[in-house]
Simulated scan of single mutants.
Amino acid sequence: MLEILPETHGNVLAVRVRDRLTIPDFDRYRNIVRDLMLKNEETHIYYEMVDVAWINPVAAIENGLFDIIHGLDYGRVAMVGEKRWQKWSAKLASTVKKHGIRYYNLTDKEQAMRYVLEGEE
């Protein structure tokens, strides 16, 4: 499930994902990101993962291709998670983002949000 957080405004997208990530979830996420990228020089992303049990592999691959194509349009990106595979995922996706991805543990989510919103930790 994809939840748009209230910190979303201007060129910032803040989302929380829980449980299962489906193709419609990824499609919704990519459409929002694409719209922000068309309107802004850089788009900053806060991506929080909580209790994620399953991710549709086809959607994950499509999302990875989107990131490769649009990597230079990303600004500050923070991924917040609670599992080792999430940290590895952030490290892998970081290679195609303009400024990389900063990974934070779930306990440090306020720090991650501050980085995305203000650029400082």
Score class of each variant (00 low, 15 high):
Ile61Phe: 14
His9Trp: 06
His70Glu: 11
Thr107His: 11
Leu5Pro: 07
Val96Gln: 03
Leu106Arg: 14
Arg34Asp: 13
Gly119Val: 09
Asn105Pro: 06
Pro6Arg: 07
Met37His: 11
Val58Pro: 07
Arg28Pro: 01
Val50Gln: 08
Ile23Arg: 12
His44Gly: 03
Val12Ala: 01
Tyr103Arg: 14
Val17Tyr: 14
Ala59Met: 08
Asp108Thr: 05
Ala93Arg: 06
Phe26Asn: 12
Glu62Ile: 04
Leu36Gln: 02
Arg34Tyr: 14
Glu120Ala: 10
Gly64Val: 04
Arg16Thr: 08
Glu3Arg: 15
Gly100Trp: 03
Asn11Leu: 02
Leu2Arg: 02
Ala93Asp: 15
Ile4Gln: 08
Phe66Met: 10
Trp88Arg: 11
Thr95Pro: 09
His70Pro: 03
Ser89Glu: 14
Arg114Gly: 07
Ala53Glu: 15
Ala112Ser: 00
Arg18Met: 06
Pro24Tyr: 05
Gln111Glu: 15
Ile101His: 00
Glu120Trp: 03
Gly81Asn: 03
Val12Asn: 01
Ala14Met: 04
Lys87Leu: 02
Ile61Tyr: 14
Tyr104Gly: 07
Met1Val: 14
Ala59Asn: 13
Arg18Phe: 04
Lys39Leu: 01
Glu82Tyr: 04
Asp27Asn: 12
Val12Ile: 00
Arg18Cys: 06
Val33Thr: 04
Trp85Thr: 02
Leu21Pro: 12
Asp35Ile: 12
Ala59Ile: 06
Arg30Ile: 05
Ala78Ser: 02
Ile101Thr: 02
Asp19Ile: 03
Tyr115Trp: 13
Leu117Cys: 05
Arg34Gly: 08
Lys109Phe: 03
Tyr115Arg: 08
Arg28Ala: 08
Leu92Ser: 06
Tyr29Gln: 02
